[in-house]
Amino acid sequence: MNDQLILTDLFDNEIGHMSKEETHRSGRLHRAFSVFIINDGKMLIQKRNKNKYHSGGLWANACCSHPRYGEALTDSVRRRLKEELGISCEFRELFDFVYFTEYGEELFEYEYDHVFLSEYTGGFDFDREEIEELRWINFDELKSEMLEEPRKFSSWFMIAAPKVLKLISER
């Protein structure tokens, strides 16, 4: 929680930095990223560790985090893929979006989220403090679960995943 996050305006221009804890307690807009990993018609999703400070026990994309102040976005993606999943892989940015979620009176996610896609076929050595469970899920099954049980998924996943699935289907 002591990492310095990059504060941005609505157009992702850097306007300062602040500790991760203070950023989330004050509800300041900051830079973040979400990595989606696919393979053979399936998407890798993670169940966040139930002890995470927000969204614990919810399903989300394979990896998500924040670049640290002074760290390039792609460098932070590589770092977190290694730290969270124990992998190195190629990825490309698909799109970005801004979202706001309130988790209580003093905890907010207000992120300028960059969404990346990777096609990966290897194994994982994931960090159990971050991730409770990993699961490959067929695209159609994922769509059905998202429609029928949206509360099982993180707020940012519910925004980004349909866009990722649509882009995948169009290629």
Rank of each mutant, 00 (worst) to 15 (best):
L29K: 02
H30A: 10
R31N: 00
R31K: 11
A32G: 00
F33Q: 08
F36L: 03
F36K: 04
F36V: 04
I37N: 14
N39D: 13
N39K: 12
N39A: 11
D40R: 15
K42D: 04
M43W: 13
M43L: 13
M43V: 12
L44M: 13
L44V: 09
I45A: 13
I45R: 13
Q46C: 13
K47L: 15
K47R: 15
K47M: 15
R48Q: 11
N51M: 10
Y53H: 06
S55V: 00
G56S: 08
G56Y: 12
G57E: 04
L58P: 01
L58T: 08
A60I: 09
A60V: 11
A60D: 08
N61F: 04
A62R: 10
C63P: 06
C63Y: 10
C63S: 15
C64T: 07
S65M: 11
S65A: 15
P67S: 01
P67N: 01
Y69D: 14
G70Q: 12
L73S: 03
L73W: 02
D75W: 14
D75R: 15
S76L: 03
R78C: 03
L81G: 11
K82P: 04
E83M: 13
E83N: 12
E84T: 15
E84G: 14
L85T: 05
G86A: 09
S88F: 09
S88D: 15
S88W: 06
C89R: 10
C89Y: 06
E90K: 14
F91A: 08
F91I: 02
F91K: 11
F91T: 09
R92C: 09
R92F: 15
E93K: 10
L94I: 13
L94T: 07
L94S: 12
F95E: 00
D96S: 14
F97W: 04
V98C: 00
F100Y: 00
Y103C: 12
Y103N: 09
E106C: 06
E106F: 08
F108G: 03
F108P: 01
E109L: 15
E109R: 14
Y110A: 04
Y110F: 10
E111G: 01
E111Y: 02
Y112N: 02
Y112R: 09
Y112W: 04
Y112F: 09
D113G: 07
H114A: 04
V115C: 01
V115K: 02
F116S: 06
F116T: 06
L117A: 01
L117M: 01
S118N: 04
Y120W: 04
T121Y: 12
G122Y: 09
G122N: 08
F124A: 13
D125L: 12
D125A: 14
F126N: 03
F126T: 03
E129M: 04
E130Y: 12
E130P: 12
E132H: 14
E133S: 06
L134T: 13
R135I: 15
I137A: 05
I137F: 05
N138L: 07
F139L: 14
K143Y: 02
S144L: 10
E145M: 04
M146Q: 06
L147I: 03
E148V: 03
E149G: 03
R151K: 15
K152M: 07
F153L: 08
F153D: 04
S155P: 01
W156V: 03
F157I: 10
M158V: 00
M158W: 09
I159H: 01
I159C: 00
